[in-house]
Amino acid sequence: MLRVKNISKSFATNKAVDDVSFQIEKGQFYGLLGPNGAGKTTTILMISAIMQPDIGNILIDEKDVYKNKHTVKLKMGIVPQEIALYDEMSALDNLVFWGSLYGISKSNAKQKANELLDWIGLSDRKKDLIKTYSGGMKRRINIACALMHNPELIVMDEPTVGIDPQSRNKIYELLDELHNNKKTILYTTHYMEEAERMCDIIGIIDRGKIITQGTLQELKNKNNVDESIVIHYEGNAVDKLNGYKLKNDADKNELIIYSQHAKHDLPGIVKKCADAGITILNIDIRNINLETIFLNLTGRQLRD
């Protein structure tokens, strides 16, 4: 469905996107995960045909987006990071307006808008002005606007930024439904939980480059990351524990011990700690996740 081939984009001396390639098959949910400023939005702008890459090309259904702007735009529904709605118009009018830009007749647009408002759970407030909505409601309308023309490819640029967990969960439900209906989705986020929860394929982007991509399991397997056992202690700890890598943060009274099989190694580690005279307050096992993969690959936290 979407093939991004070796695209790069620079602004003055800053290389915002550097030789990025990935592809999304029909019905796949692809997550582009990376911290702020990693190049996610620039990539989206190029895919949505409003910014031309310096090099490389982007194909949708084997058609170059720059040579077939009109055709490919009709196939795409874009959910921008900003709440791009008209505050002084009602939800229904906003949906009908955005639908009309895709050539939908007024009556069809109204019908589709009502269906979508029902789907996102806001049909009872459809005539209220957008400015009276909460942030989470606006986010849902933002998504619905992109679906008015029933696009084949849905591109979402951090659609859950700045909203409360409850509203976020509501959006996750909507996205799950789209995924179940075999919609092709490109989703950017800096929340690893979102990528882990929803995406079939995850590409991790940092400083303009995709540093790894694959399914969650593939990422875990190929990035050789250890699980960790986090021990909070009282008194003094040790800097070495035979057979294990560890990191002692004396300020936090926190000892992080790395292991490939944390659950299996836990009893032995507890015994060694007791032998070393460490008073353990609590123990936490941290499994491999995207955060640890990102940390392992870049040496930085995802939210740095």
Binding site: L45, S48, A49, I50, K69, H70, K73, L74, M76, I78, P80, Q81, E82, I83, A84, L85, Y86, W98, L101, Y102, G103, C145
Partner: peptide, 10 residues
């Protein structure tokens, strides 16, 4: 951001 969204439309 509305202008950007308008430009992303056909």
């Amino acid at each position: 951001g509305v202008l950007k969204k308008l430009l992303q439309s056909p």
